[in-house]
Simulated assay, not measured.
Amino acid sequence: MTLSQSSSSKSTSLVQHVRAGKVYRREDLVPYSTSVDRELQQLVAQGLLQKLAQGMYYKPKKNVFGEVPPNESDLLAVFLKDKNFLSFNPSVYNSLRLGTTQLYNKNIVYNHKRHGMFKLDQREYDFRLKHNFPKPSQVTTEYLLVDMLNNLSDLAEDEDEVLERAKKKLNQFDAKKLNKALVDFGSVATKRLVNAWLSQGLSKPGVL
Rank of each mutant, 00 (worst) to 15 (best):
K59T: 00
L144S: 02
D126G: 11
K62D: 05
K113Y: 08
A156R: 15
K59R: 08
Y32L: 02
D28Y: 05
L145A: 05
L29C: 06
N105T: 04
Y58D: 00
L129P: 13
F79V: 13
K169H: 00
K59F: 00
A20C: 09
P70K: 12
S87V: 13
D184L: 14
Q122F: 13
N107D: 12
Q50N: 09
I108T: 13
L144P: 01
T140V: 01
K177T: 14
D37F: 10
L49A: 05
G201K: 05
K180W: 13
T101Y: 12
K176T: 13
S9Q: 01
A77S: 15
Y32K: 03
E39R: 01
V109R: 10
K106E: 07
L75H: 14
S7D: 03
L40S: 03
S13R: 11
G66Y: 02
A77R: 13
L48P: 03
G47R: 02
L178E: 14
A181V: 13
P205I: 06
V139D: 01
V30P: 04
T2V: 06
K204C: 00
L152Q: 09
D154L: 15
L182D: 08
T100W: 07
E142T: 02
L129Y: 15
Q16G: 12
P136V: 01
K191V: 12
L202G: 00
S153I: 11
S187E: 11
K22A: 12
V23R: 04
L52H: 05
A45D: 06
